[in-house]
Amino acid sequence: MDLRVDGLSHWYSDLEVLRDINLTIPQGQIVCVIGPSGCGKSTLLRLLGGLEQPTQGQVTQVGEPPVGSLNPLTYVFQDFALLPWRSVEDNVSLVLERHNLSKAEKEDRISDVLTRTRLSDFRKAVPKQLSGGMKQRVAIARALSVNPAVLLMDEPLSALDSQTRELLMDDLIDLWTREQFTSCYITHNLAEAVRLGHKVVVLSRRPGVVREVVDIDIPLANRRMSDPRIAEIQQDLWDMMREEAQTADLELAP
């Protein structure tokens, strides 16, 4: 299933945050969206999954979601959004409970996603006992358990320290290499964008418009930080963003 954005504009009362966004998230690709802070990246993601209504334009699902998908558009949040009073398995179970799955199927889905995110040994742990990286892996497991068509990721690594971020990035690359999920990945971190994105969409400062869409042809698994091609793309992206970021930095909050 693809996700297509047509002529999307959005205002918060009289503050214009997004202007005329056109974008396609094709099946099996990760589309990274980068931009200076306050450019409407997170708003865009909320609009993509229907957590907010666009003022103008629309978001369209093209094609059918995969068989067995319980929640085609599924989020992974920056601050994990785990329920602190539920164990790892119960946090996953939360999003399956209303679908009237048989006990066996629910259990299958839970143990499947926990295996895929290497959390099987921590089923009974509560979020407080887990490190930040593990918490985000639980959130990813929860998202995978509903078999989503598109994963909407809102700066999923921003709340983590830099080593954990590297590890989790490798995990995401492994996961994609195995199962080619479709994703829109919001980040302000250029290194993440060039490592994970098949396409990188650069938004301008507020009101956010698409400044540039950069395709990166190198397979995800082969991208090394030392690769000069990767470094060059990252430099280009930074050149594009620097000025926007500087100007955005000087603006007062609305």
């Binding site: 957590l51 319980l70 599924t74 989020y75 949040f77 959004a81 939360l94 999003v95 409970e97 209303r98």
Partner: peptide, 20 residues
């Protein structure tokens, strides 16, 4: 964000009240 999480996974209003 916990409530938004519930909504994003399509939980019903009553479920969100009771479980979150």
């Amino acid at each position: 964000t916990l409530i938004r999480m519930g909504q994003s996974f399509g939980l019903s209003r009553w479920e969100i009240v009771r479980k979150i």
